[in-house]
Design a protein around this nucleic acid. Sequence first.
DNA 1: AATCGTGTTGCACAGCATTGCAATAACATG
DNA 2: CATGTTATTGCAATGCTGTGCAACACGATT
Lengths: 340, 340
Amino acid sequence: MADGKDNGQGRFVSAQAVAERAGVSRSAVSRAFTPGASIAPGTLARVHEAAAALGYQVNDLARGLLANRSRLVGLVTSDADSPFRAQMIAALSQALIERGNVPAIINIGPTTEDVANASRQLLRYRAEATVFLSGSPPESMVELTRQNGQPLILINRAETGLDSVHCDDMDGAQQAFEALSLTGASRFAVINKEDPSPSLGAREQAFAGFAVASGFKPGVVRVGHSDYDGGREAARRLLASGPAPDALFCVNDLMAFGALDHLREAGLRVPDDVSVIGFDDVPIAAWTSYRLTTLRQDPHRIAKEVVLILDRRIADPDAPPVSVYFPVELVVRETVKARR
Amino acid sequence: MADGKDNGQGRFVSAQAVAERAGVSRSAVSRAFTPGASIAPGTLARVHEAAAALGYQVNDLARGLLANRSRLVGLVTSDADSPFRAQMIAALSQALIERGNVPAIINIGPTTEDVANASRQLLRYRAEATVFLSGSPPESMVELTRQNGQPLILINRAETGLDSVHCDDMDGAQQAFEALSLTGASRFAVINKEDPSPSLGAREQAFAGFAVASGFKPGVVRVGHSDYDGGREAARRLLASGPAPDALFCVNDLMAFGALDHLREAGLRVPDDVSVIGFDDVPIAAWTSYRLTTLRQDPHRIAKEVVLILDRRIADPDAPPVSVYFPVELVVRETVKARR
DNA sequence: AATCGTGTTGCACAGCATTGCAATAACATG
DNA sequence: CATGTTATTGCAATGCTGTGCAACACGATT
């Protein structure tokens, strides 16, 4: 404020500088910032005053060095800007910040090399844990984190020996099938992406399985990307390949929006001619242009579970790995025909 | 892999352990991971072998301690899950990772206290820089980062003495007004949020200014939130308060979607009865249910500018602060009536 | 007045990697 | 064979903070 030169070369202020200014030892400074430490009220005040004047902040790098771990938690993800991922990132980072962590987001491409790099980076920063939102870590990376005692948490993908939290894809698919079944539909279809993630794959498999078990022959269309354009393309192929379906399950909302728009453009009425169900319940699903009936995954719920697992894993590094499943909930809006 | 016990207590592997296994000194290990350092090919190989077997990764905390700064860059934002923010976060984190940084995302609430906490946290981790995506840092925090020599970069808000990058809100508003003007409209309106950010405020002010300068009396509606529901609410109030506008400028796309849906529900045809222009050009704007004409801000462009400023600021901490403006581009789709 | 207890404070070391400097080994040259 | 040169390598210091341990002062107790 009034100093003018602040400090030497614009470097960070150290405890040493505060100690000199307050006329105490460096230990005193350290104690002044450690709750419950033994320090006289007078010195405490002098130290705090000097610290405020200099703008001192404890160096968490050094603190982490001492503890051999930082409060960083890595969030590894691809497509960080897609709606559901963005919600997950927001919810996770919020929950982690509340826990006192600093979430580092590693936005990766689809290659294994990218994933490996991200993982190594986080290891180098002694991150307290790494959370994978998408893309499974290669075996070599799992081994690496294990050697270094860094917890690894997977979201929506199972991997033996690792902690994970996922929604109940099976149950979601079943709810979707039953809801569509009640409309009296007979021409079922699913749309998905090629090389789907385990979670997306499970939804498709389960849905198709239920349909077959009920005596139907579900159509399955897979396209390159699980986004809006992918959904449009899938719907186009579906209509081109034969009679229009009267019940469509999309493995995520984004594809559902694309499909919905294409279906309507093609002159089909939703839900009169065809009923559509999505998955995720992103905010857009509630918009009046879509009013999409969908299976809801709550990002905050997931974030809460992740934090719980983290607490447990850190308290007991040798505890057996857990897989937490949480239920999905059918949110009924206006893309499914009322039951007959 | 075959070790069984890996290492002692699941702690991180240190250079010490690698040195012992390879039968060399710690220095040799360090040199083995420093490109260009003087080391014999034989020892290099032995060290790398031992490191691979143990799963060693250099400790960037200690490295940062020595350099007195980490490769962390803080991204301070609120509403991390709104579409445009999510795009910004994705683009920035990608650009920063390419630069060798680790982006830490601090998702904050609206209070000054939250912002201050985030800023302090980043200071404690000796982050290389802090980027504010939303919310201006309080004066005390600016002073604090200055005292510690930590660069601060603002996005879409100006603050004297600080580096910033923003889109040309004025020009965007002008383009919007001109495009709407060409439809022959006469009843102009803007919708915005209460207590708008500087950028949102500038758009509204400029648009209203141009309208007035052309002899019109623009209607201005402000609502609590700049999201979809806010846009609906604003449109509702607009229609309730008098004759329907025939040209509507929304300060961001999200509000435009809400307004569009409400307008259509109210029986107005877009663009025949009313033309609408948004701001940002989020992906949804291209969806066939909306096909929104809007002003495009390119997140990757912004990210690139931020990295450039960062490079410059680090090379010369005393360089005068810069404000980079970049142009916005009118993306013409189908919510503006063709010119008469 | 002597002794004990309590509250403070400083010293020194740990934790990890980098790097200047000095020592060593190996090799070449006269 | 002696000496000079070069490539390696280890030592030790550095950067910053937390904390056990010992020293110290001061007030209280008998």
